[in-house]
Protein backbone atom coordinates (compact mmCIF):
# COMPACT_ATOMS: atom_id res chain seq x y z
CA UNK A 1 0.00 0.00 0.00
CA UNK A 2 2.84 2.35 0.88
CA UNK A 3 4.27 2.01 -2.64
CA UNK A 4 0.88 2.69 -4.23
CA UNK A 5 0.38 5.83 -2.11
CA UNK A 6 3.91 7.02 -2.84
CA UNK A 7 3.24 6.60 -6.56
CA UNK A 8 0.05 8.66 -6.32
CA UNK A 9 1.81 11.40 -4.34
CA UNK A 10 4.80 11.59 -6.66
CA UNK A 11 2.61 11.72 -9.75
CA UNK A 12 0.71 14.70 -8.35
CA UNK A 13 3.70 16.53 -6.82
CA UNK A 14 6.84 15.32 -8.63
CA UNK A 15 9.06 17.94 -6.96
CA UNK A 16 8.37 16.81 -3.39
CA UNK A 17 10.50 14.19 -1.63
CA UNK A 18 7.76 12.29 0.18
CA UNK A 19 10.21 9.83 1.76
CA UNK A 20 11.91 12.69 3.61
CA UNK A 21 9.22 15.31 4.29
CA UNK A 22 7.55 15.20 7.69
CA UNK A 23 5.73 18.54 7.70
CA UNK A 24 3.88 18.53 4.38
CA UNK A 25 1.02 20.58 5.82
CA UNK A 26 2.70 22.42 8.70
CA UNK A 27 5.37 23.85 6.44
CA UNK A 28 2.99 24.40 3.50
CA UNK A 29 4.89 22.02 1.24
CA UNK A 30 1.50 21.03 -0.17
CA UNK A 31 -0.99 23.73 -1.09
CA UNK A 32 -4.71 23.19 -0.70
CA UNK A 33 -5.22 22.11 -4.32
CA UNK A 34 -2.40 19.55 -4.07
CA UNK A 35 -4.11 18.20 -0.94
CA UNK A 36 -7.40 17.97 -2.82
CA UNK A 37 -5.79 16.15 -5.74
CA UNK A 38 -4.03 13.69 -3.42
CA UNK A 39 -7.09 13.02 -1.28
CA UNK A 40 -9.47 12.52 -4.21
CA UNK A 41 -6.99 10.25 -6.01
CA UNK A 42 -6.54 8.15 -2.85
CA UNK A 43 -10.32 7.98 -2.40
CA UNK A 44 -10.79 6.68 -5.93
CA UNK A 45 -7.84 4.30 -5.79
CA UNK A 46 -8.71 2.66 -2.46
CA UNK A 47 -12.46 3.15 -2.73
CA UNK A 48 -12.69 4.94 0.62
CA UNK A 49 -14.25 8.22 1.70
CA UNK A 50 -12.06 10.89 3.26
CA UNK A 51 -14.01 13.59 5.01
CA UNK A 52 -13.05 17.27 5.31
CA UNK A 53 -12.49 16.54 9.03
CA UNK A 54 -9.72 14.15 8.11
CA UNK A 55 -7.76 16.97 6.48
CA UNK A 56 -5.62 17.56 9.54
CA UNK A 57 -1.83 17.95 9.70
CA UNK A 58 -1.51 14.76 11.77
CA UNK A 59 -3.12 12.77 8.93
CA UNK A 60 -1.23 14.37 6.07
CA UNK A 61 2.12 15.64 7.30
CA UNK A 62 4.12 12.67 6.02
CA UNK A 63 3.88 9.60 3.83
CA UNK A 64 3.60 7.44 6.95
CA UNK A 65 0.77 9.57 8.32
CA UNK A 66 -1.13 9.30 5.02
CA UNK A 67 -0.62 5.51 4.98
CA UNK A 68 -1.90 5.31 8.56
CA UNK A 69 -5.00 7.32 7.69
CA UNK A 70 -5.75 5.12 4.66
CA UNK A 71 -5.24 1.99 6.78
CA UNK A 72 -7.65 3.31 9.41
CA UNK A 73 -10.21 4.13 6.74
CA UNK A 74 -9.90 0.67 5.20
CA UNK A 75 -10.28 -0.96 8.61
CA UNK A 76 -13.36 1.05 9.63
Amino acid sequence: MREEILKILTEICPDVNFEEETALIDESVLDSFAVIQIVTEIMEHFNIYIDADDIEPENLNSLDAICQMVQNKLAS
Binding site: S32, I36, A52
Partner: peptide, 10 residues
Protein backbone atom coordinates in the same frame (compact mmCIF):
# COMPACT_ATOMS: atom_id res chain seq x y z
CA UNK B 1 -9.45 26.49 4.31
CA UNK B 2 -10.37 24.29 7.24
CA UNK B 3 -14.00 25.22 7.79
CA UNK B 4 -15.20 26.32 4.33
CA UNK B 5 -12.87 25.23 1.50
CA UNK B 6 -12.27 21.55 2.35
CA UNK B 7 -15.88 20.90 3.46
CA UNK B 8 -17.10 22.25 0.08
CA UNK B 9 -14.58 20.40 -2.12
CA UNK B 10 -15.04 17.12 -0.25
Amino acid sequence: EKYIYYPIVL
